[in-house]
């Protein structure tokens, strides 16, 4: 096709400018709805730009014009051809009571896998310390866990949580952000076909198992449970949920649903991943607060029975929440 480029640009540029201005308006206010007349005009301008692109792509014109038109048509195409469900208004109450627990239950197999790997790590960590007590130094890279547990317990009970006085909020902030980052990494490692997630969960389990065995064999079981349960009853499940999300991602990559393309599989789980991320982050914020403001108090300042009871109550509530919350809505949704 022979085309007079300069004249073509002169004639068509006003339409491109109009389309660009309309696109800018739509993009600046995603929630805005165009009146019928403007929608028609928008469609006309898109068609015109697309046809200009067709004309110009057969002509050896400047690639700048081609690039400009392609970018313009691409932007308009995105607006006109979007058929996916529009974003619903976010309602925290609905998300908390329905969406998160439902999403959790939808991927229960991934959760069991995540839990199983953590338990396996716990057994392995405890087993290693049982066979070789000298491995403690290598397994527990934290200075405050290196000493004899009974000595640490005696010291903690003597100081009655004074060491954290005036630092608790900062400590809580540190715990929240650190645990969320660890959990996000565990999830992100799902992109290594789940291998990284497996390693991360197993390693977390190994540390937990080694610490637990160390305290139990030194006769500090009550302290251990009283120390770990108040925050651990929420923190550990949160990390396991992060692992669950990692396996959901890995499952989409590997392709358990063979009939779908990789992009369709990833798109199918994307919303669930975001929900799980929101869920474990919320739980970790709670766990951080409890760990900083409650878990660090020991007997005689805080009876272990109270701490263990509180931890068990939290675990029970968490299980009830994740297992039962939103079941009614779920049934209603699936019913014809």
């Amino acid at each position: 096709m022979i085309l007079d480029l300069q004249q073509f640009i002169r004639a068509e540029r006003p339409y491109w400018n109009e389309l660009e201005a309309l696109l800018r308006r739509i993009e600046e206010d995603p929630g805005a709805r165009l009146p019928l007349e403007e929608t028609r005009r928008f469609h006309y301008l898109y068609d015109r730009a697309a046809s200009d692109l067709l004309r110009i792509s057969t002509f050896a014109s400047s690639p700048e014009i081609l690039g400009y038109l392609e970018a313009l048509v691409a932007r308009a195409y995105g607006e006109i051809h979007e058929t996916r469900e529009p974003r619903r208004r976010f309602l925290f109450r609905h998300w908390f009571s329905q969406q998160f627990p439902q999403t959790f239950r939808r991927h229960l197999r991934a959760f069991w896998l995540s839990l199983g790997l953590t338990v396996l790590g716990v057994i392995f960590g405890a087993g290693i310390l049982c066979v070789d007590p000298d491995a403690k130094e290598a397994l527990l890279p934290f200075s405050h866990l290196q000493g004899k547990p009974s000595e640490r317990v005696a010291e903690e009970e003597r100081e009655k949580g004074q060491s954290l006085e005036g630092k608790k909020a900062g400590f809580a902030g540190f715990l929240m952000t650190h645990n969320i980052q660890v959990s996000l990494s565990t999830l992100a490692l799902g992109m290594t076909y789940g291998i990284g997630t497996v390693i991360s969960l197993f390693y977390n389990g190994v540390i937990l198992g080694a610490v637990s065995y160390d305290y139990i064999q030194d006769g500090q079981t009550r302290f251990l449970i009283g120390w770990l349960l108040p925050h651990g009853s929420v923190e550990i499940p949160s990390i396991i949920i992060a692992g669950q999300a990692g396996f959901v991602l890995a499952g989409a990559l590997i392709g358990s649903r063979k009939r779908m393309t990789l992009f369709d599989r990833l798109a199918a789980v994307r919303g669930d991943l975001v929900t799980l991320i929101g869920g474990f982050s919320m739980l970790l914020v709670w766990a951080g607060i409890i760990e900083a403001f409650f878990s660090q108090y020991h007997e005689p300042a805080m009876p272990y029975g109270v701490k263990i009871g509180f931890g068990l109550l939290e675990l029970l509530l968490l299980c009830g929440y994740l297992g039962l919350s939103g079941r009614k809505g779920q049934l209603g949704e699936t019913a014809p």
């Binding site: 691409a74 051809h81 974003r87 980052q181 992100a188 490692l189 992109m191 290594t192 994307r270 975001v274």
Partner: peptide, 24 residues
Amino acid sequence: VIDASGLKLQLSQIIIRNLLRPVD
């Protein structure tokens, strides 16, 4: 950043691409 199919970018896509940075 655009949707690879040319469609409108969704919030979940932006969240995922940003939160998976640790592995990248």
